[in-house]
Amino acid sequence: MSNTPIIEIEQLTKTFRHATEPAVKGISFAINRNEIFGLLGPNGAGKTTTISILCGLFPPTSGKVMINGQDFQTHSTEIRQMIGIVPQDIALYPTLNARENLEFYGSMYGLYGRELRNSINDWLNKLGLTDAAKRKLSTYSGGMKRRVNLIAGVLHKPSILFLDEPTVGVDVHSRNVIIQHLKEINAQGTTIIYTSHHMEEAETFCTRVSIIDQGKILTQGTPAELINNHPGAPNLETVFLNLTKRKLRD
């Protein structure tokens, strides 16, 4: 793992129009190349807002975001080409089959011809979807849709991959397959930024995590460091619950 940051955030703040409180309140952190960085927090903590800003979906109200030393204002296309996103919702066309969906999204990243076909075939094969590739997505199970959702974000071999709860609502088998392949992608040089509610999954999957709540970073470090820094906490979930005060969140 390299220690050179690929993502740098300084004093990032986002206040949505008509909102009384900022969703993200002046957070700063850096993510190194080849890390699997977990952004953990309860509902409404500001995880998705942070990831959306990092993906260039909307600009921050204030603060600085640098991706690979470039910012969105001057290098939007270059940054977008190097990132991949696997959104929380299944962002695919239900009336198209898996191959048609992937051909379209792959093309939007500039892939075409044999390169695109090979990449699609390779990923469909890896995630066990070759036989179902010509079926409409609306006939897929939740786990199968999640796998296609993942492929759509990684076809172009991104340098940075954003995963917003990629395994939510997925059975154990599908989850294992997804996590295993994400580790493979990371091993090939892709930096992963990951959000999840599965603390156990985050503990084993992430190289470093940041716990965020109410728009602020509460703590940051490797899962082992966080557990060690909280005496009596046997795992990351206990650390998380202690820091976020065990209150129910909407």
């Binding site: 977008r80 996103i85 959104p87 695919l92 999204y105 990243y109």
Partner: peptide, 10 residues
């Protein structure tokens, strides 16, 4: 269906 979310990041 969320496609626009993904398309806006491309």
């Amino acid at each position: 269906e969320g496609s626009v979310f993904r398309l806006h990041t491309m």
